[in-house]
Amino acid sequence: MKIIEVDQLVKKFGSFVANDHLTFDVEEGEVFGFLGANGAGKTTAIRILCGLSYPTSGRISVAGFDVYREREKIKQNIGYMSQKFSLYEDLTVSENIRLYAGIYGLRKQEIRERETELLERLGMSDIRKRRIGEIPLGWKQKLAFSVAVFHKPRIVFLDEPTGGVDPITRRQFWELIYEATKEGITVFVTTHYMDEAEYCDRVSIMVQGRIEALDTPRNLRRDHQAGDMNEVFLQLAREGS
């Protein structure tokens, strides 16, 4: 089933075309990578998919809801995590969970049960009263992701999720992501780190407002005779400029 459908999405700011006829679908349960250089138009597109801004034209639905008419429905069905900002540093682990769960309208009883279950699963029960600012980055990332999917959204948007952590913590993070997809959650990753892209089921590469390639990392490497996604990206970016 297609959880995101984008058909001929155009977004203009004055005469500047930020998104130039984007067309792509995302399958339910997929880990979809949305790649592009800084300024390629990624953020503009994501804001539209999250129901935060209107497209200029095009037919777009997210979790079955229309981005023109059903933006509040979209917001209830998605989660969002960014590397830079997700959790409040001066609130405790537990307070952050309760804050986000409350915003998404979960009941107190439900929050208590799920919080206990989550902290046990992450091995963080002992630090539930520690402030976020005091815990290591790797734990923060795992917690930020778990908080973003705490209300069981259909889709979770991850903005450059794994930068800066050690290679083992990073892989544990990806295992957490794949585990979430087994529960039917779709994961939409935006990043300009190409080694992060290698973990996605499929990736699209955006250059100057257009999608220049869309396939599995394996096929993209093969088609561009490249050793890794970084080389694929450099080839496409060079052709585009």
Binding site: A37, N38, G163, G164, H192, M194, N230, F233, L234, A237, R238
Partner: peptide, 10 residues
């Protein structure tokens, strides 16, 4: 090169 895209990084 932290936070810099692949092209600028190269």
């Amino acid at each position: 090169t932290t936070g810099v895209d692949a092209v600028s990084r190269k």
